[in-house]
Design a protein around this nucleic acid. Structure first.
Lengths: 223, 223
DNA sequence: TAGATTGTTAATCGATTAACAATC
DNA sequence: TAGATTGTTAATCGATTAACAATC
């Protein structure tokens, strides 16, 4: 979508699809570690994720050599490698824009806090919400964003406002120097040079389910 | 991932990627309609979504003929067609399992209610939550799920519980006859024959942002 | 009519998988 | 050693895009 090319440690471009899978590999490795496994084969890992073993080996091969023939992959070592690849070796400060239902849920989402993502700031433009405490953080006036992120540097901003407001919020974030945006609205946010935007659409997935359940569509028709 | 093949009105299989894009087309067409446009070219639609015009035409061509040379696509007609394709011509009853932060946010999410998705039931196993009212719906004991969905038929179940509990919840849902599951946990849910499962991962997207921001990974190394 | 835009075919590009030598 | 499993090459598969005749 954007000129999204990352280069592997061997100089090859990393397929987009590979990058999508790595977090799933990492999560599954955590699960294996919890149950006490020390190593895992590409076949076992693939099976647990509904993927072919060759897919796993190819994906990992972009980043170097992690396995041993006959033994598979050392889980601790591979976890370490994937954490490095995914940039999970440092802490990321998050700002959430929008203190409505979704924003509040994300502010206290354990999946962020249990990893290296720390919600530091929450903004809204609703006077009824400004000043409220959400999980230990006081909601700030959105108009103070630029000022506040000078005090507390923010790595990733989450947009959790109504769709209509999302475009303006994105503008403001980009102008304030934010380089990574996680968009929880259906808004189409593009064209911001040098800014990474990830879309986490809440409702799009349910359309696919609806399509599956209904299983019909119009025939040729019209003119 | 699963043997996910849908067949178009012309007998061709519809690419997975196409199905992912259709909801975005539909949303963008709503936006064009709101501002009063009557038709749109594949070029204009593509530009607004960061896609090539040929991509749009090819995607639509799987389902039949919707455009007119020289005029592009009639927006009302195309919206109608896409709604049919996506199965948005009927109402879908939703059940939410998990009345924590995410579950609550989804229960009152406008993006569902404003479309043809109606939250009808909310379940949890936490005594402190059972009996609570969330947006007009009383949280029920999860153990009563099978019984309750006999009274109120449910088309799609949303899983919004802690990951650990997700596997068991999915089992229960499948046993109760649910055919479509929208999974908001990082759990890997597979292998349920005849059941459509969509994953709406909240945290995976943020790993991609972290990777972009960090832009490093291990070199060859180890043995 | 002339020009714009469609739907579709063919070419390109990218991602997955099968096959297999290397190796533990 | 024999057998299992890796990393990688080559073949396949699928998705995107360029090109263009058809058509409004």
């Amino acid at each position: 979508m954007n000129g999204d090319s990352t280069i592997s440690s061997k100089g090859n471009p990393i397929p987009h699809a590979t990058m999508e899978r790595l977090p799933r590999y990492l999560m599954q490795l955590y699960r294996f570690r919890v149950i006490g496994d020390a190593n895992v084969s590409s076949q076992a890992l693939g099976e647990s994720l509904g993927l072919k073993d060759t897919q796993i080996r190819k994906d990992l091969s972009y980043f170097g050599v992690f396995g041993k023939a006959r033994y598979g992959y050392n889980i601790d070592f591979l976890i370490d490698a994937l954490e490095k690849i995914l940039g999970l070796t440092r802490v990321y400060n998050l700002a959430i824009v929008g203190a409505g239902n979704i924003g509040r849920a994300l502010a206290t989402y354990r999946g962020f806090e249990s990893r290296e993502f720390r919600v530091k700031l929450i903004f809204d433009n609703n006077k009824g919400l400004i000043g409220q405490d959400i999980g230990g953080i006081v909601v700030q006036d959105f108009r103070l964003l630029e000022e506040k992120i000078k005090e507390i540097p923010v790595d990733i901003a989450i947009i959790a406002v109504p769709e209509k407001a999302a475009y303006e919020v994105a503008e403001t974030l980009v102008k304030a120097g934010i380089k990574a945006i996680y968009n929880f609205t259906p808004a189409e946010l593009h064209h911001h040079e040098g800014v990474f935007i990830e879309h986490a659409s809440i409702s799009f997935g349910i359309y696919k389910l609806a399509h599956h359940l209904s299983g019909h569509w119009p025939r040729k028709s019209q003119r």
